[in-house]
Design a protein around this nucleic acid. Structure first.
Lengths: 204, 204
DNA sequence: CCCTTTTCACCTAGGTGGTAAGAT
DNA sequence: ATCTTACCACCTAGGTGAAAAGGG
């Protein structure tokens, strides 16, 4: 994924379909990102692969992205696919513009994973001792006590929530694409990059 | 205001600054429109004025527009000006696309007034016997019982809310502008109509 | 040298009133 | 005759990767 100072959307967007919620209970849905390890990577063009190259910067505080519809009833969340298309990735440690979200310090080459959470919110980032998680898993949200709106929610943490992560959502965070095939895949599939397409439609 | 089948934004946007709320309580903010009378109007070009011309269609059920940030804490509402810029006016009696909102039946010439409400929501339209209100007033919201999210809120009505209306927010709903000076005012002030401006900037 | 930031042309997405055609 | 709809050119607003410029 491209990461910028102003914040860049993920593509494709992280989307989930929820089931098993209490239709009448209120839920807050949120997402954060966990480094798969504490290494820094470098792309080796000759072998077309990522090579470990030193340690990553010390654990960034790790921010949390609340789904804008939070809080909402379980019935509302389950009605249709929940899309985190407003989420943006940034490498700016300061600037916390509204929905702009997490990424680690300087190096643009850490492996990340979308993690969806629930509950009061809070510093949902796992303590460094938990890293790296062997296999990212996806967990699902639970009902919460009612007074939970954004800010207020951030007090409660690590209680009454389930976390889910998906291995297939791993990605490399970069400030510029390293692999030309990734670039072409994005150009071919992201509507906003249509201006860079040439010729043959949709072989993806 | 122009009113279309697909829904048209108001311009200028209805905005309010709130004070006196309980910072920690949850509030739902909503808005609806009340005909100033039950007459139908026709624009007389020769006198440049609106003339009453028969009765309006029977009271349309009158829909309600919930501010998208609802519910939120009083502190959140008071932090900055609350803008209803997502609100749209429509003359389509059926089609209730998300945020699209009220307007009466056929005639595009009724006088309306933005009315902001609070509480469970519900059929906030006043019964016909209350029409026309002599002078539209603006009322302010009150704290509500917690489980209030959109749909669920619509059960509760006429309880625990205050209504405010402003005389200066009266307008004529039309399907096409009748008064050329209104057209020019909109073109001069609405950024999206910049394409129709010619020459001199901002004499408004 | 490698990585990041800035700027840009080119898109998507959607809000304007004008205009002509349609509806009653 | 009057009101409404559908379509249009022209905007705002913002999401793309490319390319050039900047920084350690």
């Amino acid at each position: 994924m491209i990461v910028t100072k102003a914040g860049r959307r993920m593509f494709p967007t992280f989307q989930v379909k929820l089931s098993g919620l209490d239709p009448l209970a209120d839920y807050v849905l949120l997402m954060d990102f966990i480094p798969l390890d504490d290494k820094r990577y470098r792309y080796a063009f000759h072998s077309s692969s990522w090579l470990a190259a030193g340690r990553a910067d010390p654990a960034a505080p790790g921010r949390v992205h609340f789904h804008p519809d939070s809080p909402a009833k379980g019935a509302q969340w389950m009605r249709q696919i929940v899309s985190f298309d407003k989420l943006k990735l940034t490498n700016n440690l300061l600037d916390d513009n509204g929905h702009v979200r997490t990424r680690p310090p300087g190096a643009g080459t850490l492996t990340y994973l979308g993690r969806m959470e629930r509950g009061g919110g809070g510093p949902a980032h796992l303590p460094p001792s938990h890293l790296p998680p062997p296999h990212p898993q996806l967990h699902a949200p639970l009902p919460a006590p009612l007074p939970c709106r954004r800010r207020d929610s951030e007090r409660f943490a690590h209680q009454n929530f389930k976390t889910f992560s998906f291995p297939e959502t791993q990605f490399m965070a970069v400030t510029a694409y390293q692999n030309h095939r990734i670039t072409q895949l994005k150009i071919a599939s992201n509507p906003f990059a249509k201006g860079f397409r040439d010729g043959d439609p949709e072989p993806w």
